[in-house]
Every structure is written in structure tokens, then in C-alpha cells.
Design a protein around this nucleic acid. Structure first.
Length: 598
RNA sequence: GGUUCAGUAGCUCAGCUGGAUAGAGCAACUGCCUUCUAAGCAGUAGGUCCCAGGUUCGAAUCCUGGCUGAAUCACCA
């Protein structure tokens, strides 16, 4: 229900009557009444003045008077400056609480008439190193957006694309072969992805040493040294062998990738991330090449002097783009062409969302253009959900320099801090070790997820480790705590065998704080829609934080179980239950679980 | 150099489809636990909303120009 529209249309009907005009309702601007003023919604009078040809106060008075008089939807009005603040009848708010509390999944819009089939790709890790903070943002945004789109009634397919082939994996493989002495993750007691990642780092270390040494002893320039690096040549050779299906190379590749997948599985489980389908680039990478060759026959791509194949996009204001290297091998773009076409054949999607960092804005722009030039009319349905980088307080993360925040380390660190904090506060005394651990796990993951999701996705964000483990204020645990409090009240009500009746009497008097809280709940539907269309979990995160703040104020200022008036007590219990459900639902859309106690 | 995005309190962020006195949290200071969970609530202090013009009754929000930062610009993924 769009209440602003309803108010606007009521107001315009009256306005036209008074001033003999025939304005459309969208001339009227309805905004929420600012805090500190009496009223629920505000009609901005300025735009109406030229039609009424009267002073603002006059117009406001005439309009307000008739609105309240003719329509019992409104209960009162007040004019401040050029603003007409109107109050909506309490019965409306009470009725809303009553109705919303009866709906199973209040807020979710599951019967969308414009239901779309949406494929969403996220995560897309490389198998040469463990995931870091950047991946976490990607995973969380992708998972949350999927849930939000589902809540908007769409049919969502979550896919992962694992980049499991290429020169970077060969580097790890080569390093392991040379210096690994047949060690395995089990033999050294290390998580598989970290184990393999260590060899990637080792390769780069030895490679850099070699470069320095070549520059010194042979007098090469850096470029020449890089070209002549023995290690790099061996890695390239290994890649060629891989492509030719060399048995030995394939075997090492398979073994090492399996280790990495095992590690990833654990990280995904910790983060609560799941996929409907996982694509492997080692399987799909060839299909792009075929597409390029077909389009060469159709004259849509050009061949350069050195036999490389490129496409000309000068008509789109862009440059040329290489699609096949001079040696005939695929580039990144070629692979994405292939996967896009495969995806479309697999799902016939109405929309395809790529959750990928904004460093690749240009790439996805080009991808769409190339597919369009190749005649795929669905290229217009590809969307790049572009999010900003995660930076550390002292600058950017650099994986080659080892200056990264590792995902697993971070999760472990958060858990440790949450445990320490919980013990300090003595919050979970009397719980079994198992129950305790489970609650602490939920809290620590919530802190991490909320910290990342509350920031507007398209913006770069700074990750301050010290702040991320804070559990007070604008944090995930604060919201969870609100839920736990509500749950505790409801449990006590149950113990006292109080029956909560959500058929609410319409003559309960509402306190300002109660009304604020109801209005906050009322916004939920709108926020879900907005988060869906704008692709922004941050909207939901900020919403549920504000809702929690409103509830805590209510909880602090007004008695609930101790309220003596039976009707008020019942109403406050119904409202509490409703808020609890909305908090749980909203957090769920962010992929955050709620503890029943904390 | 071109393109895209960003610049709001000491710090991290909201607000941006134009509306009233620009909001939170953290950090600092002050109150409130014999009353439903103090991981809470209330308060004090902290602002040339990067700068300069323009549009408008009205601009943090829209437009233009500048400054600063980030990303990116045909054979790395």
C-alpha cells in the first residue's frame, strides 16, 4: 500500500473542489512529518500556491480543515510555515498492526505479477589462493541480493563461476612441485586453500628473487628480465601442457584444486553461502572461442596483422578489443562471452546479474556491447552489480604483498572477540558449552555481515578491524539483542499464560513512541521493494537498525508486561511480536541469523 | 589525457527521485540497573555538507566549471 499516494489523491480531490482546479495528484508533495512536529505526513504547500492564489497559511487552513472534516482517515492538522502536517486516525495504525501481525511473512512480496527469472553470479573465486575481505563483501552482497530479489517475488538462481584454470594456478602447481616435497594439507595440518595459496606466494617470492638476480648479473632491464624468467617460462609451459591434457599436469591440477575446493567449502559454510549451481571455467573456457570464430565468418570481428582477432567498437565511442590472442588462445573476455551464452542456454533468464567489483565496469560494458554486436538480443538483460573496493585504514589491500585480511582469519578473530566479550558480561552463564558456542557464532558472524552490508554497495568502504568487532551501537549484535529482548518478553508472557490476541480494539490511545514504532514497521514493505529495485542490502540494514532503535526506546519508556490496562498490554505484546518478526525477517534477508537469547 | 564513481562531525557511515532546525554509531564528557536482558536508554559537546557559480519560493540533494581521491582505458584474470 502506498500511503503517500492515497493521501495525495485525497488532498487533491479536496483542493480541486475548493479552488475549482483540475490538478493531477502528482502535483502534491507528501513527505513524512519531521520529528518534533505534530503529525504523521506533511503536505508541502508551496507548489500549490500558484493554483490557489492564496497565502500558504490560508491554503493550509482551508485544505486541512476540510480534509479532517470530510474524511475520518485524518484526525488532526497543523500548519507550520508552508507545511501542512496532518495526523492519521489512530484506528488506521491499530488496524495495520492487527492485520500485519496476522500475515505469515509480513513485508515479503511473493506474488509479484512481474515475476522474473533472474540468474545471479557471485563469489567467482580463483583456485590459487584463499578468499579475503574483498571476496567476503562479494559473497555477502550476492547472497543478500539473492534473498532480497526472492522476497520481491522473483525466481532467483544463484550461480558461482570458479576460475580454476590459467597461469595463476600453474604458478602454485609449479611451486609445489619444486619445493613442496610432496606435502599435503593433511600432512602439515593446514586448510587446503591456504596450503595452495602459500605456494602461490612462494612462487612470487622466488620469481621476484630471480628477476632481481637477472637484472644484477645479466644487466637486463626489468622487462627483459621478466621475459627471460626461467620460472615464468616453466609456468607457461605447464599451462600449455594443461591445455593439451597432459596426464601428469592434469593430475597435479586436479589434486591441488580439490584441496582448494575443500577449503572454500568450509569458508562458504562459515558465511552461510550456498549456490544452486557452480560453473567451472576449466569446462566452459573453450566455448567462447567457438563463438568468436563463428562471428569471424560473419565478418563481425577483424583479424589483425599478427593474426590476433579483435572487435571494433569505435561506433560506441570505445576502442578495439582483443578477443583471441595472436597465438589463438582465449582472453578473459572470450571466456565471459562463452559463459554468458551458456548461461542463457541453461536458464533463458529475464535478467542476469554479475556481482563483480567496480574495477571491472569497463569489462562488463564491453561484454554487453560485444554480445549485442553478435546479435544476442538478451545482452540488454545483463546487469553488472558493481560494488566498491574494501580498503584498510592504512590503504589498499594488496594480495601480492600479502597485505590482505584473510576471510578465515577474520571469522576466527571475530569469534574469539565475541566469546571474550560474552564471558566478560556473563551473558550466557548457565548455558551448555554447545549452546553457548552456537550463540557466539551467530553473534560474531552477524557483526561481520552487518558491518559490511550496511554500507552502500557502490561505494568504497574502509574496513577497520577494531570497529568491526564492536558490539555496541550501529552493529549486527545490537539488532540481535533487540530481538532477544523481544523474545524474552514473549516467553515471559507465555509463562504467565497470557494469551496474545491480535484482533485489536480500535480505541486504544497511542503514545508518540508507540506510533513512531508502528510507522517504522509500516515502512518495511516499501523498503523491501526499494532494496530490490535499487539492488541495495544497505537500505534494509539501515532500516532494521532504525527499527531496533525505535523498539529499544519503546521498551525502555513503556511498560509491557507490567502495563495495568489490559488492552494496552495486549496491544504492546502484539506490537512487540510484530517487531520481532520484522527484525528476524529483515536480518534473514541480509543472511543474518537471530539468537533466541543473548 | 578520456571515461566512471566518490568527497557530509576527529573516525566509520545514513540522508541525495529538491522541502522545515543536516542524522546515527564510535571516540570524549554526564546521568539512569532492589522494576520486562545496561550488548540498553537519555543528555552535553562536535558541521563553511570539497570550492565557485547557476536553476528555484526553497539546494547536502539538480546543472556547469574547478579541486582532491579511487577505479579503468585492445592481447592479466
Amino acid at each position: 500500500m502506498n500511503i503517500e499516494k492515497i493521501i495525495a489523491s485525497k488532498a487533491i480531490t479536496i483542493f480541486n473542489e475548493i479552488y475549482q482546479q483540475s490538478l493531477k495528484y502528482d502535483v502534491v508533495q507528501i513527505i513524512k512529518t519531521k520529528k518534533g512536529f505534530e503529525g504523521d505526513y506533511t503536505i508541502v504547500l508551496f507548489p500549490l500556491l500558484r493554483y490557489a492564489k492564496k497565502a500558504p497559511v490560508q491554503v493550509g487552513k482551508e485544505l486541512g480543515e476540510l480534509l479532517v472534516q470530510k474524511d475520518n482517515f485524518f484526525s488532526d492538522y497543523e500548519i507550520v510555515g508552508g507545511y501542512l502536517n496532518i495526523s492519521i486516525n489512530n484506528a488506521f495504525w491499530l488496524n495495520f498492526v492487527s492485520e500485519a501481525s496476522k500475515i505469515q511473512n509480513y513485508g515479503l512480496q511473493l506474488d509479484n505479477k512481474e515475476k522474473k527469472k533472474i540468474v545471479i553470479e557471485f563469489s567467482a573465486p580463483n583456485t590459487n589462493k584463499p578468499q579475503h575481505l574483498g571476496h567476503i563483501r562479494n559473497n555477502l552482497l550476492g547472497a543478500s541480493l539473492s534473498r532480497i530479489l526472492k522476497a520481491n517475488g522473483h525466481d532467483v538462481v544463484k550461480v558461482n563461476l570458479v576460475n580454476d584454470r590459467g597461469i595463476h594456478i600453474c604458478k602454485s602447481m609449479l611451486a609445489w612441485q619444486k619445493w613442496g616435497e610432496n606435502a599435503t594439507p593433511q600432512s602439515v595440518g593446514k586448510k587446503g586453500d591456504h596450503f595452495v595459496g602459500d605456494y602461490y606466494v612462494l612462487f612470487n617470492k622466488k620469481y621476484n628473487e630471480e628477476i632481481e638476480q637477472l637484472i644484477e648479473s645479466e644487466g637486463y632491464t626489468r622487462k627483459e628480465a621478466e621475459k627471460n624468467s626461467n620460472l615464468m617460462l616453466q609456468a607457461k609451459k605447464m599451462l600449455k601442457k594443461w591445455e593439451r591434457n597432459n596426464k601428469k599436469v592434469r593430475q597435479i591440477w586436479q589434486t591441488m584444486n580439490d584441496w582448494v575446493f575443500e577449503g572454500f567449502e568450509k569458508t562458504y559454510a562459515d558465511l552461510g553461502i550456498e549456490f544452486d549451481k557452480t560453473y567451472l571455467e576449466s569446462i566452459t573456457y573453450l566455448s567462447g572461442k567457438a563463438i568468436v570464430l563463428i562471428n569471424m565468418k560473419k565478418g563481425r570481428v577483424q583479424v589483425a596483422d599478427d593474426d590476433s582477432i579483435y572487435i571494433n567498437m569505435e561506433d560506441k565511442g570505445l576502442d578495439k578489443k582483443i578477443l583471441l590472442r595472436s597465438d589463438g588462445t582465449s582472453v578473459y573476455m572470450t571466456q565471459d562471452l562463452g559463459t554468458a551464452v551458456t548461461r542463457y542456454e541453461d536458464y533463458k533468464f529475464d535478467e542476469h546479474i554479475y556481482v563483480v567489483g567496480n574495477e571491472q565496469d569497463y569489462h562488463f560494458n564491453v561484454l554487453k556491447i560485444v554480445l549485442d554486436k553478435f546479435g544476442y538480443e538478451w545482452s540488454k538483460d545483463l546487469q553488472h552489480f558493481s560494488y566498491g573496493m574494501v580498503e584498510l585504514p592504512d590503504g589498499k589491500m594488496k594480495s601480492r604483498e600479502g597485505k590482505v585480511v584473510d576471510a578465515d582469519d577474520l571469522i576466527a578473530e571475530m569469534y574469539k572477540t565475541a566469546k571474550q566479550k560474552t564471558d566478560e558480561l556473563g551473558k550466557l552463564d548457565g548455558f551448555s558449552e554447545e549452546e553457548k558456542n552456537e550463540i557466539i557464532r551467530k553473534i560474531s558472524i552477524a557483526a561481520l555481515k552487518y558491518f559490511i552490508l550496511r554500507v552502500d554497495p557502490k561505494k568504497n568502504m574502509t574496513f577497520n578491524p577494531a570497529e568491526s568487532i564492536d558490539f555496541n551501537g550501529n552493529t549486527g549484535p545490537f539488532i540481535q539483542y533487540t530481538y532477544a529482548r523481544i523474545n524474552s518478553i514473549l516467553n515471559k508472557a507465555k509463562e504467565q499464560s497470557i494469551k496474545i490476541d491480535n484482533t485489536i480494539l480500535e480505541n486504544i490511545e497511542l503514545q508518540t513512541i508507540e506510533k513512531e514504532l508502528i510507522k517504522s514497521v509500516f515502512k518495511y514493505e516499501k523498503i523491501i521493494t526499494e532494496a530490490g529495485t535499487k539492488h541495495s542490502p544497505a537500505l534494509l540494514a539501515n532500516y532494521v537498525y532504525n527499527l531496533s532503535k525505535d523498539y529499544n526506546r519503546f521498551y525502555h519508556d513503556l511498560p509491557i508486561l507490567k502495563e495495568t490496562d489490559k488492552n494496552s498490554k495486549n496491544f504492546r505484546l502484539v506490537l512487540s511480536q510484530l517487531v520481532g518478526n520484522v527484525i528476524k525477517s529483515a536480518l534473514n534477508l541480509l543472511g543474518i541469523e537471530v539468537p533466541e537469547r543473548m
